[in-house]
Design a protein around this nucleic acid. Structure first.
Lengths: 203, 203, 203, 203
DNA sequence: AATTAACCGAGACGGTACGTCAGGTCTTGAC
DNA sequence: GTCAAGACCTGACGTACCGTCTCGGTTAATT
């Protein structure tokens, strides 16, 4: 969101101070981890980063943009590999999802994004484009590969994606169940056609 | 949360004005529907309800409490019936979930609750106690009845509940897919042991 | 300006804090004497008075109003007496003018008022109504009494008033001549018909 | 103030752009006439002149200097001639004063100068050197010529100068009386010894 | 013609103050 | 004892200018 704009800027005038930029983003991260999204303020970021408010406003128009850029790779879910083993690929996809959702900074940002998204279209779009959709596309491909080999227990891939994301979200971020090991196995049992015996579990 | 406090108040002195209470809650509903949770302010509620801020603060300590009480039945998911037909009961449970999540006022409140919950333990507890848990308990019973008849495709009932809630949440509130008809069928196909032929769907 | 408004306020609600009011006005006086009008800021007044900016803005809409009220009696020129001795009365009028213009706080306020007046009609009006006009009216009466006894050297009383005020302003506030003793005598010699010998002076 | 600095600059290197200089001074004049001194900003001048802020700061250190130079001849009161007719010379002196004080741009600058002078010694000096003192010296000479012929009604020439300047300032810039015709006659009657009949006027 | 020093535009930057808004708390008099 | 009114301190909002500071590029007299 910002990098594109930056690279497109004219080369005249005093160049942007990368030191300030880094100080700001670091301050955002620190404050998010310390007090969450709601209590994050431009004023506080400016003070902690040793930067003027105007400098922040010059480059980020909203708290959302700021947080999205500050969180950086923490919320960037890795792409799902294509190893030839569809089952392993899907396991990897779920692992990546759980890994990101379990990251504290990421969870704060994801909550913030979901909430803000309800009132801010641009933010919602950015959230989808940066966090979920890249993973979703590569995860969809992994599911398609499984489907071609008739390994999938369900034909509606979009539904399966919503199921996986929704269940992981519910378990890690809403219920905050720290034991997520069973989660992955259970999801695999749901998604893939059972080969011989059904999965076990205790509710 | 509030009713307890209220019933514990002294019986002498001027009684609480029910008119004010209703005006406040109505104002909250109006303002939530108009501008969402983030732009809801005590100041604005007081102005619209024709009430002083102090009166609101006397009875509700936070925006969360206020919203939770104002939303009232809109977010109260009905209990799952026991008709003897486990399949029908589970369908009813999912319907209730989708119905509530599709309600505009309820969706605003649920978002607010989830977000606030990340920073406010009391709010998180209230959310669970009032919105999800009653449904969850009776839905669990319906699933148990199905399990006893060996109709369930999966043994981990807690997992199934998270799966149902998470998927519905994802589809209705995050992706905001207005077509939720297939959602119910797909969920049923996942939850219940397939009787003859597998379910169909196209993502 | 403020007292009228205050007395006309409704008797309901929390009454205005007189302590805050006095602290604010004292802070304004201190800061004016320390740094002049230009460097006086709402922010600074709030800080020094231990008061919030909003409280200042609630009661005074502009720096001008604030300064005008803070200066209070320092800029209020006394009324000219009617002792029966027209010459003595006019001397008193000039003394009052010089006395006020020589007061440091008053001079700051008068400068501010004149300057602001160029861009703020209300301020100009307030300046005239509070500082100059009351004096001017009673001074005009003293001049008229002298005129009736044929003691005036000039028939145009309005001109004489402008002459007195203008000359005193020029000498005390623009040229900042600390020796103003001759000023009074010289003005008297100009205003009154010479009785026997002409006035003397050496510039 | 500026010419000295400019003439002392090195003769090598790129010479100062006179186009920028003129654009800046013209912008200052426009903005002064449009919004007065208080709302004049370096930022605004730079924008309107199509010039960078740094260029303005390079040549003028303060708003005062900028305005003083921009106003140029508008505030430069002409020298009083020596025609041999002392009365006519004094009339000319007063006319020049009234003429300058009635000029809109000049009046803005004079107010600005007086105000700034209260807090800025250098500005006060510049104001005196450029606006009032040249006129004052030549007007003093005209009064001295009249004094030598015993035409002066008052011996204190410095006082008379303050009286003239003060009264004209008061009438034209404070009271803003547009009818200044009587002003000149009245001042002449005060300054010069009456020859036969006394002056007339109606207050 | 090449060098060179000063000029200039653009604009980022740390600041200070602006005027506004809402959060919570309080004080008063009326009911 | 509750209520409406509303004053109050606090703290953040988003904006405007301040005066300073790089930059990339231009301009003309001096070599």
């Amino acid at each position: 969101m910002q990098s594109e704009a930056r690279s497109g800027r004219p080369v005249i005038g005093r160049p942007r101070s990368e030191g300030s930029r880094e100080a700001i983003l670091a301050a955002v991260r620190d404050l998010l981890l310390k007090g969450g999204y709601a209590s994050l303020t431009f004023e506080g970021v400016a003070k902690r980063a040793g930067v003027s408010k105007a400098t922040i406003y010059r480059w980020w128009r909203s708290k959302g943009e700021l947080v999205l850029e500050a969180s950086g790779d923490a919320i960037r879910i890795g792409l799902v590999p294509d190893t030839g083993d569809a089952r392993a690929d899907i396991v990897a996809a779920i692992d990546q999802l759980i890994g990101t959702f379990s990251n504290r900074l990421a969870s704060i940002v994801i909550f913030a994004a979901i909430t803000t998204a309800a009132e801010d279209r641009a933010m919602a779009q950015a959230l989808r484009d940066r966090i979920i959709y890249p993973w979703r596309r590569s995860a969809a491909e992994a599911l398609e590969r499984a489907q071609e080999r008739d390994e999938l227990a369900h034909n509606d891939i979009v539904f399966l994606l919503d199921l996986i994301v929704g269940t992981v979200f519910q378990r890690t971020l809403v219920v905050k169940d720290p034991v997520v090991e069973g989660l992955k196995d259970n999801l695999m049992a749901i998604v893939l056609r059972r080969r011989d015996s059904g999965p076990t579990g205790s509710g």
